[in-house]
Amino acid sequence: DTLHVTQDGKHIELRGLSEEEIKLVEELLRRGRKVEEALKIIEELRK
């Protein structure tokens, strides 16, 4: 699936995420994380 995010005035499209990963990214962003940080966390969880 694809998640569309706008952060720091930039539109970012995150592709290839599972539904659970999207929920996790959304939660991390709500808690003030940056998109880059959220993606690093997803990458770690995929290992």
Rank of each mutant, 00 (worst) to 15 (best):
L24S: 06
L24M: 10
R33A: 14
R30F: 06
G9V: 02
L24Y: 10
L39G: 03
L24W: 11
V25W: 03
K34Q: 08
V25D: 00
E37G: 06
I41S: 08
A38Y: 04
E19M: 08
D1L: 07
S18I: 05
A38K: 00
V5H: 02
L24I: 13
E21S: 02
L29T: 03
L24E: 06
E37L: 07
R31C: 14
D1N: 10
L45A: 13
S18F: 11
E44M: 08
H4S: 04
D8P: 02
L29Y: 01
R30T: 11
E26T: 14
L3M: 09
L45C: 02
I12V: 10
E21T: 03
E19T: 12
K40L: 12
E43D: 12
R31H: 15
K23D: 07
L3W: 00
L29G: 02
L45R: 11
K23Y: 12
I42M: 08
K40G: 12
V5A: 03
V5K: 02
H11R: 06
E19A: 15
L3G: 09
K23G: 13
I22W: 04
G32H: 09
I22L: 06
L45Y: 09
G32A: 04
K34I: 07
L17M: 07
K47V: 15
E37H: 09
L28P: 00
E13H: 06
L28Y: 10
V35I: 09
R46G: 06
E19S: 12
K34P: 12
V35T: 03
H4R: 05
G9F: 01
L28R: 02
E21C: 03
I22A: 12
I41G: 03
D1A: 02
E19V: 14
H11Y: 09
K23V: 13
S18G: 06
I22T: 07
R46L: 06
R33E: 13
T6S: 09
I42N: 00
K47T: 13
E19D: 14
T6D: 15
L39W: 09
G16T: 05
E26W: 12
E27N: 11
E27D: 14
V25T: 05
Q7L: 01
V25Q: 01
H4K: 03
K47F: 09
E21P: 00
K34T: 11
E13R: 02
E43T: 06
L14P: 06
L39F: 06
L39S: 04
D8S: 02
L39D: 01
K34H: 09
V25F: 07
L29W: 01
D8R: 01
G32P: 01
E43L: 07
R46N: 07
E13Q: 05
T2W: 08
L28S: 11
K47R: 12
H11L: 14
I22R: 09
A38E: 00
G32E: 03
L39N: 03
L45K: 11
R15S: 15
K34C: 02
I12W: 12
L45E: 07
D1I: 03
I41Q: 11
E37I: 10
I12G: 05
E44V: 07
D8Y: 00
A38F: 08
R46A: 09
G32T: 02
T2R: 07
S18K: 05
I41P: 00
G16V: 03
L45F: 08
I42F: 03
E21Y: 03
I12P: 05
L14E: 11
E43W: 04
L39I: 15
V35Y: 03
E13C: 05
V25N: 01
R30G: 10
I42K: 00
L39K: 08
E26S: 09
K34W: 12
D8T: 01
A38Q: 01
L17H: 01
I41R: 11
I12S: 03
E20H: 12
L17F: 11
I42L: 12
D8K: 01
E44C: 08
L28D: 04
I12F: 08
H4A: 05
Q7K: 03
R33K: 14
E20L: 09
V5L: 04
G32F: 02
